[in-house]
Design a protein around this nucleic acid. Structure first.
Lengths: 141, 141
DNA sequence: TTCAAATAGTTGTTATAACAACTATTTATA
DNA sequence: TATAAATAGTTGTTATAACAACTATTTGAA
């Protein structure tokens, strides 16, 4: 029996992601921060000094895109990149004063967004969804 | 308690989507078809003659992107656009012979991909994930 | 009936993604 | 030690997305 668009779980996932990303984009726009740039900032707010490659690995992204996003974040004044003195191939990424302050404003907003996303969904259901999404990722590895 | 990256269900969804899209892209590349272009083609294989706006609504996408994707599909020879004689604002989209033939090759491939994506996941689990993803979309509407 | 509003589609801009091809630097090995 | 291989990062290209601003056409309302 031929499948229709709504039968494909990958399409449902894709459209859910688009909707979420669109909301996050609007939410972060006043702070001059794009959604993927925010992911990098979230990593750095936890711990900065990471190299570009480390950021790429942690976010499971192509390093070419990390280069460009960091260039943008640096241009906006949220981060600084400095070459490692041990090995001049490495660029370590540090938060600026402004980048640090941004976290105090953004983190409460993203956590509040998360609460609205999962509203009416139990922890058990969330765990189940997490488990199945992981399974899906493994299936197409 | 501060959330870490893996606590955000929206990030998990996003990364799952990226992985899936990346696979689909590689799968369709030999056919000169991009993933989102394929979504349009899937609609048309079900029923062609839709207007651009109808396609945008069905796929829940911005009509500007539909314009560009259709321009690309037309340039590749898979579709034709023809102005409605009743109302010259409407462009109806039709499959070409080549576009039709493409379906016979692609549909079995996407269905086989779907089976590999959901392998080891029960119908009940899939329904549950679908239900919760829908709930999430409604939460951020 | 005429002009404003609504509708369908297009174009320009910015931000991702993925891939190929590239430079610079370091490491490993013959 | 000289050079090939490995590693970190950059640049160019194509395909989405979202939004603003635009044109062309049709509808609606004074």
């Amino acid at each position: 029996m031929k499948l229709s668009l709504t039968d494909y779980i990958s399409i449902t996932i894709h459209q859910t992601d688009l909707k979420l990303t669109s909301c996050v984009k609007a939410m972060l726009a006043p702070f001059n921060l794009a959604p993927e740039q925010n992911l990098i900032m979230m990593l750095l707010w936890e711990k900065d000094g990471l190299t570009q490659n480390e950021i790429a690995e942690k976010l499971d992204k192509d390093k070419t895109n990390i280069t460009r996003m960091l260039a943008s974040l640096e241009q906006k004044g949220f981060i600084k990149r400095s070459m490692s003195s041990n090995d001049r191939r490495f660029l370590h990424v540090y938060l600026t004063e402004e980048g640090n302050k941004l976290g105090d404003k953004i983190i409460p907003i993203t956590e509040s967004f998360h609460r609205s996303v999962v509203s009416g969904i139990t922890d058990k259901e969330l765990q189940e969804v997490n488990r199945i999404l992981l399974k899906i990722r493994q299936n197409v590895k």
